[in-house]
């Protein structure tokens, strides 16, 4: 479980970095890179704290919310992880540039629901992810 989650998050850290670089918000990028280092060293709470700092600068960036959800998922803080991913999705909206992110969020929610042992929530999240992939 831990390994799978890490792969997901690392990919997105890079993805987010390039996205925010273009936005010239280098402060957020530097915080994400530091958060990534902490994450790779298994200092998860430190990583989360840096992402929260980044969110104070860019509270409407859905990638940041997703990454924070990923850190919480790795900590097996299932409920918090699922809600943060939902927040990420609500900010991503219908924008096609965020389609991949939304899929990832639903995958993350699926994993969190599995963690909680909630079958109904797992099935629903999985079907939302699959529906998005089909479109």
């Amino acid at each position: 479980m831990l390994k799978t989650n890490k792969v997901i998050i690392l990919l997105l850290f890079l993805f987010t970095s390039s996205a925010t670089m273009a936005d010239s918000r280098s402060a957020v990028v530097s915080l994400i890179m530091d958060a990534k280092t902490y994450f790779e060293n298994d200092q998860l709470e430190q990583s989360a704290a840096l992402l929260e700092r980044a969110l104070r600068i860019m509270p409407h960036d859905p990638y940041l919310w997703h990454n924070l959800a990923g850190v919480r998922l790795t900590q097996e803080d299932w409920n918090r992880a699922a809600n943060l991913a939902k927040k990420s999705n609500s900010l991503a909206g219908d924008d096609s540039t965020y389609k991949e992110l939304r899929v990832r969020n639903w995958v993350l929610i699926t994993q969190a629901c599995e963690g909680m042992g909630n079958n109904k929530c797992t099935d629903e999240a999985r079907s939302r992810a699959q529906a998005l992939l089909r479109n």
Partner: peptide
């Protein structure tokens, strides 16, 4: 104690 960002839909 950290008051980590927490929310519920």
């Amino acid at each position: 104690q950290r008051y980590a960002l927490s929310m519920e839909k």
